[in-house]
C-alpha cells in the first residue's frame, strides 16, 4: 500500500497528544487516592496546551489526505458502520473535551467538573485511537493488517510516545516521577518491540490467496498474467503497490527496529543503571521514538499487500505447484 504522509503525521501528533494527556491526567487522578503524583500547575497547563496544539495540527495534517477538505465534516454521517467516521467523531470530541478540561483546570472550576472532563477526554481519546487502529485491522483484503496485533501495536505506540513525552516533561516539573516513568517507558517500548516482531513473523505464516482463487480457477492450473490492459501504471498499481517502497523495505525495516526500539531501550537502560538522570537522554528517547515511529508507520503501509494486486501479478508469490505427482503448496516469499 502507498503510505500517505498526512496520515503518518496524524498518528504521531495524535499519539503524543493522547498519550501525554493520558499520563498527565492519570497522575492527577491518582493523587485523589492519596498517591504523591499531583503535578505542578504549570506542568498540567503545559501538557494540555501541547496536547491541544498537537491534536489540532494532526487534524489539519490528516485533512491533506482527503480530496475535499471542506467536506470533512460529512465524515460524521456513517458512525454506525464506518470506523473512519467513528475516528472523526471521537477525535473531534476528544479535542473539544480536552479544551474544556484545560479551561476548567486553568480557571480552577469545581474539582468534580475538572475530573468529569478529564475522564471523558481520556475515554474519548482512547476510543479515537482504537477507531483509527480498527480502520486498518478491519480491512480483510490486506492480510498483513487484518489482525489484533495491528490494534495492540497501535495503542501501545500511543503509550510509548505519551510516556516518553511525559518523561521529558516531568524532568523539569516533578523529578520524583522520572524514575518510575523511565521504567514505564521501557516497559512500553519492550512491549512494542514484541508486538512488532510478532506482526512481522505472522506475515510468514499467512495463508495468502492465489490468482487461481481470485479468478475462480482450479488450484492445479498454472496461470500467469500476460497483460494488464494499460501501458503505464494506474490508480490500482500505484495506490496498492508502492514499488519504490518495496525495494527500500529491506533497509527500512531494520532501521525502524533500531531507531524505535533499540535506541530508546539503550538510552533509558543506561540512564537507569548508571543513575545518570540527564535530560538529554529523555529528549533523545522521545525524538528517537517519534522518528522511529514515523519510519515504522511508513513501513506498516508498504508491508501491506492488497489482494487486488493478484490481478496485476504484484502479490507475494504463493500457490500450488505440481511436484512428484501431487499438489504442494508453495511457501510464501516475502522480501525483507
Amino acid at each position: 500500500m502507498h503510505p500517505p504522509f498526512s496520515l503518518i503525521w496524524f498518528f504521531l501528533t495524535a499519539g503524543t497528544s493522547i498519550g501525554l494527556f493520558t499520563f498527565t491526567y492519570l497522575a492527577e487522578l491518582l493523587s485523589l487516592f492519596g498517591f504523591d503524583t499531583s503535578l505542578p500547575r504549570n506542568m498540567v497547563v503545559f501538557s494540555v496546551v501541547f496536547s491541544l496544539i498537537l491534536v489540532g495540527l494532526g487534524a489539519v495534517g490528516a485533512s491533506f489526505h482527503l480530496g475535499h477538505k471542506m467536506r470533512a465534516w460529512k465524515a460524521i454521517k456513517r458512525f454506525h458502520t464506518s470506523w473512519l467516521s467513528r475516528e472523526a467523531v471521537f477525535s473531534g470530541a476528544y479535542g473539544f473535551t480536552l479544551l474544556l478540561y484545560g479551561l476548567s483546570y486553568y480557571f480552577g472550576l469545581n474539582a468534580f467538573f475538572i475530573h468529569l472532563f478529564g475522564i471523558t477526554t481520556l475515554i474519548l481519546g482512547w476510543l479515537s485511537a482504537f477507531s483509527t487502529a480498527m480502520i486498518y485491522a478491519s480491512n480483510r483484503f490486506v492480510l498483513e493488517w487484518n489482525t489484533s496485533l495491528t490494534v495492540l501495536y497501535y495503542l501501545n505506540m500511543y503509550l510509548m510516545l505519551g510516556s516518553s513525552a511525559f518523561l521529558a516533561t516531568t524532568y523539569h516539573y516533578k523529578p520524583q516521577l522520572v524514575k518510575p516513568f523511565i521504567l514505564l517507558t521501557l516497559f512500553f517500548v519492550i512491549l512494542g518491540l514484541s508486538f512488532r516482531i510478532a506482526f512481522n513473523i505472522r506475515q510468514f505464516f499467512l495463508k495468502r490467496p492465489t490468482l487461481n482463487e481470485a479468478l475462480n480457477l482450479p488450484h492445479n492450473r498454472p496461470i500467469r498474467v500476460l497483460d494488464t490492459g494499460t501501458t503505464t501504471n494506474n490508480y490500482c498499481t500505484e495506490e496498492f503497490y508502492y514499488a519504490k517502497g518495496k525495494e527500500m523495505l529491506s533497509f527500512v525495516i531494520p532501521t525502524f527496529y533500531v531507531v524505535t526500539f533499540l535506541v530508546p531501550i539503550a538510552l533509558l537502560s543506561y540512564s537507569l543503571i548508571s543513575g545518570n538522570l540527564s535530560y538529554g537522554f529523555y529528549a533523545l528517547t522521545y525524538a528517537s521514538l517519534v522518528i522511529g515511529s514515523a519510519i515504522e508507520r511508513w513501513s506498516f503501509f508498504v508491508e501491506g499487500n492488497h489482494v487486488q494486486n493478484l490481478f496485476y501479478g504484484l502479490y507475494p508469490k504463493e500457490g500450488y505447484t505440481l511436484r512428484k505427482g501431487y499438489m504442494e503448496r508453495r511457501k510464501t516469499k516475502i522480501s525483507l
Binding site: 489526505h65 480530496g67 475535499h68 470533512a72 454521517k77 483484503f141 490508480y235 495506490e239 492488497h306 490481478f311
Partner: peptide
C-alpha cells in the same frame, strides 16, 4: 457531492474496481 476522497472504499474492494 458527498465523497470526501478518503479512498477507504477502494481499500475495501478486493477487485480493484474503484479509481480515484
Amino acid at each position: 457531492d458527498d465523497c470526501i476522497g478518503c479512498k477507504l472504499c477502494s481499500w475495501s474492494c478486493p477487485y480493484g474496481c474503484r479509481e480515484f
